[in-house]
Design a protein around this nucleic acid. Sequence first.
DNA 1: GGGATATAGTTGCGTTTGCAACTAAAATCC
DNA 2: GGATTTTAGTTGCAAACGCAACTATATCCC
Lengths: 151, 151
Amino acid sequence: MKTELSKTHLEAWRRYYPSFWRVYAAIEADLDAAKLPSLSWYDVLYQLYMAPERRLRMSELARSALLSRSGLTRLVDRLEKEGVLARKACPTDGRAQHAELTDKGVAVLRKIWPVYRAGIAKYFAAHLSEAEARQVATIFGRVFDAAECKE
Amino acid sequence: MKTELSKTHLEAWRRYYPSFWRVYAAIEADLDAAKLPSLSWYDVLYQLYMAPERRLRMSELARSALLSRSGLTRLVDRLEKEGVLARKACPTDGRAQHAELTDKGVAVLRKIWPVYRAGIAKYFAAHLSEAEARQVATIFGRVFDAAECKE
DNA sequence: GGGATATAGTTGCGTTTGCAACTAAAATCC
DNA sequence: GGATTTTAGTTGCAAACGCAACTATATCCC
């Protein structure tokens, strides 16, 4: 595994890293201003929305929503209390729980999305040409896949 | 301010956003495994290291280290307790405090950097050609600058 | 120059998160 | 098939952060 770092690559990181935080904070601020839940909610609900039967096991959800297992447990506690998802025991594995999106969850997702989309457009997409967007997708798709398995 | 979002741009976001979290988590994990302080420490110390006379006002530091003012106050509390920086009253403005990097702070910075650099190389740079790195720098420089002033 | 306003930093408090330890249910192994 | 190990999820606890309120100093404006 190579650990050298060219000046060019370092420069790329030095711009990429803080820009992410700014964009992220700006989008969160917009959601908050619209009295909507934060991106962590959206991430979980969206993963469920995409999943077959709108349900996932807790551990799968933790992985795809980029949270620790304990972090997810607490987040699902809050989401369940709000009624946007429900825990269901897994019929085939007594240890497992499924988190299942409710209709209310779908509705919440649909309320968040316009604001989220506008944030992505304003703080991110507005500064990329179509060609650049394609490149960014390619590059970070690669980065994402490589980071899947640790080390 | 445009808020439409092409499929291409959306796809770019959908790869960019989670890849950042994975890379970030992987680097933090490496730092933690090496019993080194986290990136938030590095960010603050590095900003001071780059600043004239290795010192910055709290509010400047908060902005450049991407933290809220209160968050910075607490972080500087911890850093000061570790002796890697020191608060100094500002001679020209009785309200202001300077955070000033100590020699120990420089030493800590130098201990963190090799691990951080290796993380950037492994999880990020290894997946970008030189040309792509230049483009990423250009693109996210633009994104960063635009996000400077809200709305 | 003195009262109103703005700015710098800190503090109280609540929220969110992760690690490590724990419980319970598979899966493995002899 | 019963003991051991692994896996799924939860819980105790502490760390880190942000918002709103607060204190102290500076600036503005008449």
